[in-house]
Design a protein around this nucleic acid. Sequence first.
DNA 1: CGGAGGCTTGTTACCGGTCACATTCACGGT
DNA 2: ACCGTGAATGTGACCGGTAACAAGCCTCCG
Lengths: 383, 383
Amino acid sequence: MPTGTGRAPLEAGVAHDATPRHDPAGAPGTGSVARSARELGRPATIRDVAALAGVSHQTVHRFLQGYEGIRPATRERVVDALAALEYRPNLTARSLTTGQSLRLGALTHELDQFGPSKIIQGATQAARDAGYVLDIVSLDMGDPDEIAEALEMLTRHDLAGVLALASNDHMAQAFDAADFRVPTFLAGEEDDFASEHPSQLTRVGFPALIAHLADLGHRRLLHIAGPAAWSAARNRARAFQAAVAAHGLESVGVVHGDWSARSGYRAMSELPARPGFTAVVAGNDQMALGALLALQERGLRIPDDVSVTGVDDIPDAAYFSPPLTTLGVDFVAQGRRAVEHLLARIADQQPADDDTLPSQLVVRRSTGPAPMVGSGKPASAVR
Amino acid sequence: MPTGTGRAPLEAGVAHDATPRHDPAGAPGTGSVARSARELGRPATIRDVAALAGVSHQTVHRFLQGYEGIRPATRERVVDALAALEYRPNLTARSLTTGQSLRLGALTHELDQFGPSKIIQGATQAARDAGYVLDIVSLDMGDPDEIAEALEMLTRHDLAGVLALASNDHMAQAFDAADFRVPTFLAGEEDDFASEHPSQLTRVGFPALIAHLADLGHRRLLHIAGPAAWSAARNRARAFQAAVAAHGLESVGVVHGDWSARSGYRAMSELPARPGFTAVVAGNDQMALGALLALQERGLRIPDDVSVTGVDDIPDAAYFSPPLTTLGVDFVAQGRRAVEHLLARIADQQPADDDTLPSQLVVRRSTGPAPMVGSGKPASAVR
DNA sequence: CGGAGGCTTGTTACCGGTCACATTCACGGT
DNA sequence: ACCGTGAATGTGACCGGTAACAAGCCTCCG
């Protein structure tokens, strides 16, 4: 009863109301102000809170905004009323007036792949930390209509910004063509060789990987690349070639897969009987897995006869047979960073020009000394 | 994060900001009606369209609702105006009045796991087909505060419903405790042994798998289960035991992993030197992968000495060394079905009582005849 | 020829939170 | 005592789409 019973400037208005959309079924004393969440048959609004606290809705609003200039007595009544009615702000209403929303759209595809799903994971985390949620639309690439439709859908839901993750060229094109009327950010590996800030994967990772192979005596390498339409695949292929050249080694070719183990297997199966390489550098771990199996089925021992490496360091890679030497990539951080960039753009700030993400060489048992050519004894040293 | 954003508390004092919310900057003949999207400095509303078409906003609204009773002449003007202004409905405004939104919340975790990410993929597809988007919040389980915070966030964004995917008990508890004020659906494998409709995985898959092993002469089996807190893990463990009993075989034990290859590896490493089983049935493919490696490192040949199976049939499983015998699970369909259930619940309809999803035995090279006991060939190959 | 009744179309209010501006109140200075 | 000033609070309008109801117009029939 701290609410002075008599004072109710709003009661007049309440009487008028006559047709409340939501019938206050639960309210016993008709016309009275709801005292608890249960008396209200619906979520409480700031006006409900205001009525209970005996203040204007604007005062409640101010409190919610963190405004300091409210007298302690008033403030206390507001606080109590908010609690009693279990008030929760309605973000829809808020974004209608402010034109701002706490949602980010995220376009993605191949969500079952390790990279994209990790990126999404990082992105949702970063979004949540900033108070946003991610509206995810995952596309099956291929059907242009479907892409257009999905984009169209995103434009309706008013979003603070849109993120495209895991970029391949089709996605990028569709994304560019779409008319979002909000900030956008195209995440995923950029085109390192067109950028001033090549990723660490290119600058550090691949050189380290190739150096590792060179140290082991490998001279002739084969690369299994991802699909040419993916910038990540192109980056990796070019990074491979650059590093090979830098070490004075020889690339005996680049074959393309589709990131899957199946495609890695195929790539190896289709090779001539007498491969001219001693090491295979796959563009990701899955293709490396497929390559591993194909090579083994041909009677080659890993790493005694051929060394194999991957990229990504997926959790399973440590348990392949043999465990895979690979390059670690921090996808979660990638997703996180993408969201941060987007948020910065939304706030019209310059994004922190963070360093590119670390890429670490993880040496396991799938790489070993190159077999000695001509000599009777192929390397038998284990590990 | 407290209520308000960091924004300056009410710039009331800053005086007449003189900024009309939307400055009709582009309109040349002031007061005239915008004739094109460009003349309007902002997205067109139905009132803009109405003004251009020379009708009331309600007429435009009716057209958009698909109302038939509009005179052809009127209709045509509306159509033209809509096109000229590139009108796009504002879903925020719509959901404010209708109280309905075209968004579904999705709680998930371990998004990098194959199952959950596939489920999400299916869910986003189904959601999109129905015109919804999925707001995804992925949790790191473990920190209860974080869970609560994430749930809280979901309750603010008004959603048509909330889905919890990939259920383990912590998630389920938090979910139950949360006060969403909308329909919810807890997806993922249900507790088959508490349900009238056990999944096909339980009813068909595991029996087929065990039958397969029995046919090969295996008598003593070991199960590597997922974490006990996951209903899927419990289901699979019980399905395993039930099927083993049904075939008169013997379970030599159930050890628990955490779904990861690492845990499968560990489980096998910790076994006594002379395992009392001839086949290992892992609760998922990743644990099977780890088991494969651990067994091989002990000098056991797969499948000659020990057979190994998984569950899920992840794409990589076909390229393990050796390729894995496993049970296929249709996660995409699971996600899809979850969304359909939720949507049915939202529409207050009975969901189609669809069949449980098929589960198929995929036989590959990781299973083979049980080694003959006492006969000439014990497993002593020490590499 | 007038009015009932059906089609079309227009008017007004409302959702819940925010904004611009108005009003009230307390208090100090002259 | 009076006014100015700033602090605290209140009022009304607005965002864009929707709902309920009203009004205008036309047709048909007695």
